[in-house]
Design a protein around this nucleic acid. Structure first.
Length: 546
RNA sequence: AGACUCGUUGUGUAAUGGUAGCACAGCAGAUUUUGGUUCUGUUAGUUGGGGUUCAAAUCCCUACGGGUCUGCCA
């Protein structure tokens, strides 16, 4: 039986009660003030999957009501990210398309005596609003005549006032326990920055609360799904809708819990602080939980969508462990990535019974998970590098790799036996003298009966290429960086979250492209960074192998 | 302090009055030319107290705990 979340249940019930299925319509309403992050992926996935299930669609609506914060570049990035995640919107709209309609609705509300122009300063209004355990007090301008309000609202719109001089307020209830209903602001004057779309056409801008429900109404959205912080806004959402003309479908708002990811912060505003303070290198820094950051890190759309699917939708506070995300990406990358051999901390192997001028180009399988087998050639020679920590001089319990007198398999090559080590003057091991069994080549079957417990990756000293690798760790050292509130998450920055390293890779990596995903065998998953070039190959570590 | 809201193994999420299940993580074993993958097994849960009922995670009461709200942000 398929799991069905509480929102699907609500919709199912609506349909059972007679709501026409053809009128189902959803929306995704980002504000273009930053890049999308994995929390948005949850909302995107939810809406698009519902739309798909009921054969309807999703409108992408840019909630662009605050010119101070918003920019065109964010619009572009948001569209790219949604597309990359694999979703297609029915159409793309803008709240700013509805500024005139909203103005008309506002006049309607004023005419019904339900809104007024308040000449007080911001601070005064805030004082009068009081707090959650004290009644607010009415503004002295609350009972202006309708005629005067209409007159003043027009003057506001026509630019007679300056930023902060006055606002339009809904006349609801200054004593409401819900602060959102204590005469909320509907319009404010913003002249200090022009809107990136409407330019200087408007100097009054509708607030989120005033805009959102009406935009849903205009677009015939049936179910307006948002995260829990808007829960206390729902009575206001409904109040506004009840106070505009209603000839048609009234949208309904439902809330679900936003995504919280351990060791991460999922708030555009907070992520912006990381960008502005240069704690990270831009919105697409591979440490960022942004869609663009995850993409650059090597995450696939499939892995992100699968992760979102697995965590589900509910109304309770959730703290998702990062291991769930990691599981998703490993699962997908295991299926699709090409296996290659890269040595991170090299130690030299000298094969005493292998001719010094001989080179064998050995066949090597690209991906054992792939049904259609493909192969590449890797060079084998007398001098090789293996990982430093794959060798231990003395045999130790639970250590299956190379030690003196013991045999290991070299991946795709021969069985190797270590005999001696050569030390530097400082006592560190410089190289390991070994012999190989020439009848033990991989897949030839000759020595395959022999029980070899361990298989090592390696590169040829003569043919390896140097690559640079970016290695990332969690950007925060605290599981819940928001624990102290007040933007103190900065205190928990992990100063050790980024490292770069040189490694020795098999020559096949020279032809890597940005679309390829690699498994550096026994180490992890990696992909080419956008800053890589032919001379300096640069890789990002996506995730270590388990 | 109030209004609204949410409490199910370590983490998520199902079960809408009838066997508390699934995924991740953990642990154990098997397989393996990646200490990966795969497969098998396994540990662990209904916040407490009362009530209704043949039967309660589910309904009622109550206590406790978490979250949101005092922007002219969204």
């Amino acid at each position: 039986m398929k799991k069905i979340n509480f929102l699907e249940k609500i919709i199912k019930k609506d349909l059972e009660l007679g709501f026409p299925i053809k009128k189902l319509l959803f929306r995704f309403p980002p504000e273009p003030n930053g890049y999308l992050h994995i929390g948005h992926a949850k909302s995107i996935y939810l809406n698009f999957k519902l739309a798909k299930k009921y054969k309807t669609s999703v409108i992408l609506r840019f909630d662009d009501t605050n010119p101070i914060e918003e920019e065109k570049k964010f619009i572009d990035s948001i569209k790219i990210d949604i597309c990359w995640l694999g979703f297609k919107c029915k159409k793309e709209t803008y709240a700013s398309n509805y500024f005139y309609k909203l103005y008309y609705f506002a006049k309607h509300i004023i005419k019904n005596g339900k809104a007024y122009v308040d000449d007080q300063k911001k601070k005064k209004i805030q004082e009068q609003r009081k707090n959650t355990f004290e009644y607010g007090i009415d503004s002295p301008y609350r009972n202006r005549s309708i005629k005067e309000n209409i007159f003043l609202f027009k003057k506001m719109k026509n630019g007679y006032f300056y930023d902060g001089d006055c606002v339009l307020r809904a006349k609801i209830d200054m004593k409401s326990p819900n602060m959102n209903l204590r005469d909320p602001i509907m319009y404010r004057i913003i002249k200090k920055k022009l809107h990136y779309r409407t330019n200087n056409k408007w100097c009054i801008y509708p607030t989120y609360d005033w805009t959102h429900g009406q935009s849903d109404y205009i677009e015939n959205i049936s179910h307006s799904l948002c995260s829990f912080e808007f829960e206390n806004h729902k009575p206001l959402y409904n109040w506004y809708l009840n106070n505009i003309k209603k000839k048609k479908l009234i949208p309904k708002q439902y809330e679900f819990s936003r995504l919280n990811l351990n060791y991460n912060i999922l708030s555009k505003r907070k992520l912006q602080i990381l960008v502005k303070k240069n704690i990270v290198n831009g919105w697409d820094d591979p440490r960022m939980p942004t869609i663009s950051g995850l993409r650059r890190r090597g995450y696939t759309p499939e892995s992100i969508n699968n992760f979102i699917k697995n965590i589900g939708i509910s109304k309770r506070i959730n703290n998702i462990d990062i291991s769930l995300l990691e599981f998703s990406i490993r699962k997908h990358l295991n299926k699709i990535s090409s296996r290659v051999m890269v040595v991170f901390n090299p130690i030299l192997i000298i094969i005493e019974n292998y001719p010094s001028d001989k080179v064998e180009w050995l066949n090597s399988e690209n991906n054992p998970e792939d049904i259609k087998k493909t192969y590449r050639k890797i060079p084998f020679s007398k001098y090789l590098y293996i990982e430093n920590n794959d060798f231990m001089e003395k045999i130790k319990k639970n250590f299956f790799r190379l030690s003196l007198g013991k045999e290991v398999r070299l991946k795709n090559a021969y069985i190797l036996k270590a005999h001696n080590v050569y030390r530097n003057l400082d006592g560190n091991i410089k190289s390991i003298y070994c012999t190989y069994d020439k009848n033990s080549l991989s897949k030839t079957g000759t020595s395959s009966k022999r029980k070899i417990k361990s298989t090592l990756h390696w590169v040829s000293k003569k043919f390896f290429i140097k690559i640079r690798i970016n290695i990332y760790k969690n950007i925060f050292i605290e599981k819940n960086p928001d624990i102290l509130k007040n933007n103190n998450f900065i205190n928990f920055i992990n100063n050790d979250s980024f490292k770069t390293k040189i490694a020795y890779a098999e020559p096949a990596l020279r032809t890597a492209t940005i679309k390829n995903k690699f498994q550096f065998q026994r180490i992890g998953y990696f992909c080419l960074d956008k800053k890589s070039n032919n001379k300096n190959l640069l890789f990002n570590k996506t995730i270590n192998i388990k």
